[in-house]
Amino acid sequence: METAITIRGLNKEFSAGESDENTKVLENLSLEIKEGEFVSVFGPNGCGKTTLLLILAGVEKPTRGEVLIHGKPPSDAVTGFVFQNYREALLPWRSCLENVAFPLEIRGVPKKQRENQAAELVSRLKLKIDLARPPYMQSGGQQQLVAIARAMISNPDVMIMDEPLSSLDIGASIMMRETIERIWLESRRTTIYVSHDIDDSIYLADRVVVLTGRPGGVRMVLENDLPHPRSAQIGTAKFNELRNTVLKAFYQQL
């Protein structure tokens, strides 16, 4: 299988002013993600998970090291980013349809064409969203679905998800987890998914990457070959074994 994402010796430091030392967020992080793979990144607070995603999205630059998406630097790749806080990531002054179509608007696609594409995508993904209404008039789960559709409309090389379930209540979170799994199974789009929740990480991923504490590096990579759909796998001996392995790795680096 072709490599979709290559991360080699990635370091990221943030300047802490003239007198203080720079803050190291990521240190010597290396990882390869195959085309069509779903990888969860799991780690403690402040270990640089979001920074890693912003580097992959081309918003932040590495201090040292190399990041390539299909052989190109992230700034030349098309990425679809789903944020944790959908309220602050969606545009409340626009309808859900216009939100989904927003990436095409940025690229200069004419209004009629981009709105047709957005409506077609939402229907193809079987998402139940009232496209004519603004996001704030929808439930939290529906808003996050709008955000996912928006991330997918540009046909991205890579989907990047930064804790997309953590702002949802338990019911919406379970529904969303199943929807993300279904969309991924249908599209097989390379996805990197950051989560604080160990069950979500195992439920969705082909591989779970456990990061060390700050500065973040790879602590452990765990293969997950549980069959899909995974709703039937929760609580099974194999699921619990994976869970315990991840937890053990997590506690060892605390």
């Binding site: 999205a57 081309g58 918003v59 990425t79 980013f81 944020f83 990436p103 940025i106 690229r107 990047i160």
Partner: peptide
């Protein structure tokens, strides 16, 4: 940040 990810 969202707009920057879209290269706005």
């Amino acid at each position: 940040v969202m707009a920057k990810t879209l290269r706005a």
